[in-house]
Design a protein around this nucleic acid. Sequence first.
DNA 1: TTCCATTGAATGGGTGATCCATTTAATAAT
DNA 2: ATTATTAAATGGATCACCCATTCAATGGAA
Lengths: 288, 288
Amino acid sequence: MSTKSSPRTPARPRSSTPNRRERVPDHRAAGAPAAPAFRPIRTRRAFEEICERIREQLALGVLKPGDKLPPERDLAQQLGVSRNVLREALRSLEMAGVLRLQKGVKGGAFIQEGDTSRMNGVMRDMLSLGTISVRELSEARVHVLDLVVRLACANARKADLDALEANIRRTEDATREGRLLDRVECSREFYKLLAASTGNKVIAMIMDSVTEIHMRFVYAKVSSSGVAMARLAEKRRQFLAALGERNVASATRLMRTHLESVQRMLEQDPGAMSLHVALAEVQPGMRR
Amino acid sequence: MSTKSSPRTPARPRSSTPNRRERVPDHRAAGAPAAPAFRPIRTRRAFEEICERIREQLALGVLKPGDKLPPERDLAQQLGVSRNVLREALRSLEMAGVLRLQKGVKGGAFIQEGDTSRMNGVMRDMLSLGTISVRELSEARVHVLDLVVRLACANARKADLDALEANIRRTEDATREGRLLDRVECSREFYKLLAASTGNKVIAMIMDSVTEIHMRFVYAKVSSSGVAMARLAEKRRQFLAALGERNVASATRLMRTHLESVQRMLEQDPGAMSLHVALAEVQPGMRR
DNA sequence: TTCCATTGAATGGGTGATCCATTTAATAAT
DNA sequence: ATTATTAAATGGATCACCCATTCAATGGAA
């Protein structure tokens, strides 16, 4: 197996690296008197440097979605690091949604695109870590949803309204057949469609990230208590009608009162509303 | 150095692992008829499993901020994986802001808390990857800021107003002394303080994530053209006065007109508004 | 006693060789 | 022409090291 040309780099180009730990030379020093103190100089590690370089190439437009990075063995040699360290960097970038790693011949590390679900994980982590509270999240959701409704009234296109209509029909089917958990899944999708109908992916992302967690609570509640929101599809239809008429006042009012009733449903028997239950369980369709 | 007791696990407890690739058994199948197709079954890799387990412990409350994970060598043995793979997982979690890794005796992997800046990186990546556009981001910022102003009017406390006041004074100093870039940094801080004054960390996080990138553009513009917003501190004072009086209408109006004038400033000479320049450069105080 | 220098163990950071599993294209057999 | 086989490329994972940093314990000097 010595035919493998060069990946093993027996000459170790990095063995004489004083350059690795070249450290940020703190080139500010004259820059920001407003900043109160010194930023901590976390010792710069190889994998951080690698992540940053790849992100830089991305920001510079040198790398674009669909592009393929060199094979791990080659890239490691180019960067003068071991393959293991390179992989730590690639893994991190993959978890961040920047890369997609594929095995096999014609495999490799490909620049990913179009993944708008990355904020969801951040939000979940924040909640798990106690950085944010359920209360703050719920409150934020109310406000964001209000904004989304207003934007949807202004920007929703026919296709968006049709998609919402189709969603409501699925909700009706699920209700009729008593598939309560499916109905929750429909709800989740309803809000996703509504967010998409704003025409702004940033807003949609934000909306999704706060909604995903909220729906986990609803899911946990419904699945444990068996109770479910009454006249859901009916309310959805009313709302959709207001949306179709671009009636902002009516649409926001309908949504607000709906949110309030959902909140009341969740809050009765608050013992079942365990943060841990809602966060830990992986639920169908709720891709992590 | 053979005194090292056990970390090397010479007996390789995992050499007979048929369990690793245990695969999600697709236990839905009866669950979600609403979902159109099959979700791709990305082959489950060890480091993903590890990340998930740690996050699960976190969600369950078994692990809390400040807690320390076992040393890499021990934990790798417990999980039945190599140390390298474990490190890939720990790296990913560190990049995600869940862990903090510290060297030395008494070092280890500590559960992190209180980092509200994680969304910023996500937003940057989305922009670099072209998943979202500058237009969408700017538009979202206008709307989010409007919401923030309304919430700040309702919830800002005296300490918040004082902090804003102090910030405006720093802005005046920077203006007087011609430190234009410092003034941009003050602006960034102004919005951060304003977001914090809503009393809702979720909203504040969202606000920060859209503002951080916007300020990069402003920074790039100011640093390349030398022009800067006229009468900035004065406008800030007017706004702060409205905020102090809880005058929502006045505050939102002042903010909106300010945003519009900033936008005009940015849009003249659009050639300088390179996405790449704004994203790629690391600027003082703008910790990535 | 007090204080400072030395030492050594614990721990993360990093390396290189090696093997396995998957994927795909090229090749051979039917 | 179709199908089975083979081989190469590539990521996935392991092992056995070594280095750098940190900090508590130790011990000697003031």
